[in-house]
Every structure is written in C-alpha cells, then in structure tokens.
Nucleic acid binder design. Structure first.
Length: 274
DNA sequence: GGCTGGCCCTGTACGC
DNA sequence: TGCGTACAGGGCCAGC
C-alpha cells in the first residue's frame, strides 16, 4: 500500500525518466477511475511532483500539436496496489493505462485491485479530487509543526489514528506508518484527546517513521515495487505494524491487533496510552 | 458540518 | 480438488 515514502521513491525515479518527454499516445481502461489518462497526449512533461500520496505530473502543451490550451496536471493515486513503471507490460490483464513517449519508451500503470485513480486536470485545479484539494501540510515541510498538529487534532473528537489517515492533519500517512508513528509516540490509536506534549512526540514520530521508510526505499508487504521493479526494504524495520502477538520492542508486552474505524490496527497495550 | 460505516475491487488464505 | 467465505485498505459518499 503505497504511502508517502513509497510514492516519493517512485517520484524520484520517474522524474528524470519523464522530464522533457512528449506524450505521443495513450490508452486507458474504460473505468472512470482511469479513463482520463489520454488527456496527457500532446503535452510535454515539465516534471514530476508529489503531494501526500498523489503523484502530480506537470504538463505543458507541446508546440505544433492540437492539445488543448493551458498547462495541465496528470494526477495519479496508486491506491492499494498501483504500480508505475517503464518496464511493466502493456498487455498485462491488470494494466489500467499506458502512455507512449517521444523517445520510444512508455510509462505503464498497473493496478490489480483498482483502488487507484488517474485524472488530468487544469494545472492546480484539484476541485475534482476533494482529498487532494483539502490535503494537510507536507510532513517534512515548514507548515507541519508540533503546535499546528496539536491544534489540528484538537479541532476534532475523532480517534487520533482516524485523523492521521484522513490526510487533513498531515499528508501522506497511511495505515502502516500511522501504526508505527503512534507506537513510537506512545499514543493509543483510539485516543481522542492528544495534548501539546503528546502532539509534539507524535510530530517527531511521524517525521521519524516516514524518513526511515524513505531511506529504506519504502515498505513492501505484497505489491509495492519501485520503478525498476525492486521491493522496498523497510518491512524488516517495522516495530509494530503487522507484528500482533509478538513482543513490543520497547517493553516486551505482546502487541495487540483490532479493527479501529475499519482499519486493521496493531498497538502495544502497555506503552501506548489513550 | 463532523463523524461513522459501507462500498468499491480482486488475489490470497483458510475451512469444509 | 473445488467451492465458499473472510480479509486486506485509501478514498469517497450516504446517513445520522
């Protein structure tokens, strides 16, 4: 399940491959989730950015083409099982879209469970993507501060894990890194009140676990692969997620698992407090 | 307007 | 061996 470290790893690899390339052709699965992909035809790639878990490919109309006026953005969300790469087979039954490039290469989007999404929008216009439009601060940016996190969490009585997954208090955290950050901060995922000192610990924990995931090239539990097809390495460094029934690395108590607001959740019953 | 829960989707694991 | 069922979860949306 690609979260910020996985998406950023993909972005960093895609940017040099796509920058400056002209999209000459495209094909997409008829589902409304993917059918917008050909909207990139006739545009040249200015660069590949990331916002939260979204990949944003900046497009400018190429001279001499009949592409619509104005810059566009190709927005790609990988969902649960999305993969992007130059070497994925276009005739794979799970390929949902592909784009042909003017250097003879192509970019293929494969998504087994079809939880991902592709959109082509006027540049900067995210009204059709409400989660992207309302995204909270980037975790490594200056807008993500301990006090800002505390204030954002205090505005809602929803469980702290649910708030982390909602992308509004901070962008890019998914189920794995939410469990890891809450474990590191010593906060129970079901907590509904987080004071300033705990918010400060959570702020540091979010940055720590995302940076560690990024340094390890992401977490591969099943589907995630880098652009070159390699698995990530962070799965071996997880302290909490997916380790229910095994000892807490901090206190030795057995980690527990339950469903919190519909998401599988692992936590330590001893050192994570509500 | 905020919170909660259901739905989408398909491969895998497991029980019978 | 084959079938049925449960499960995984990000984003969206309906209902409360």
């Amino acid at each position: 399940m690609p979260e910020l470290p996985e998406v950023e790893t993909i972005r960093a690899a895609l940017d040099p491959l796509l920058r400056g390339r002209l999209v000459t052709a495209a094909r997409a699965h008829p589902s409304a989730k993917f059918s917008a992909a050909p909207g990139a035809i006739g545009h040249r790639v200015e660069g590949v950015r990331r916002r939260g878990k979204y990949l944003l490919v900046d497009l400018e109309p190429a001279a001499g083409t009949d592409a619509g006026a104005g810059r566009r953005e190709l927005v790609v969300h990988l969902g649960m099982t999305g993969q992007l790469g130059p070497d994925l087979a276009r005739d794979d039954p799970h390929t949902r879209a592909w784009w042909e490039l003017d250097d003879g290469g192509h970019l293929t989007y494969r998504d087994v469970r079809r939880f991902g999404r592709i959109a082509v929008v006027p540049h900067g216009d995210h009204r059709s993507l409400p989660t992207l439009a309302a995204l909270g601060p980037e975790p490594f940016g200056p807008d993500f501060t301990p006090e800002g996190l505390w204030r954002a969490l205090a505005r809602s009585r929803a469980r702290v894990k649910t708030q982390l997954l909602g992308q509004r208090v901070v962008a890019g955290v998914g189920n794995i890194y939410a469990d890891e950050a809450l474990w590191r901060a010593g906060i129970h995922p079901g907590a509904r009140r987080v004071g300033p000192s705990r918010a400060e610990r959570l702020h540091a924990a979010v940055r720590h676990v995302l940076a560690a995931g990024l340094a390890n090239g992401g977490t591969t539990l099943r589907d995630y692969r880098t652009v070159t097809g390699e698995p990530g390495r962070h799965q071996d460094a997880l302290a909490c997620y997916g380790r229910a029934g095994r000892p807490c690395p901090r206190c030795g108590a057995l980690l527990r698992r339950a469903v919190v607001d519909g998401r599988g959740t692992t936590w330590c019953p001893t050192c994570q407090r509500t």
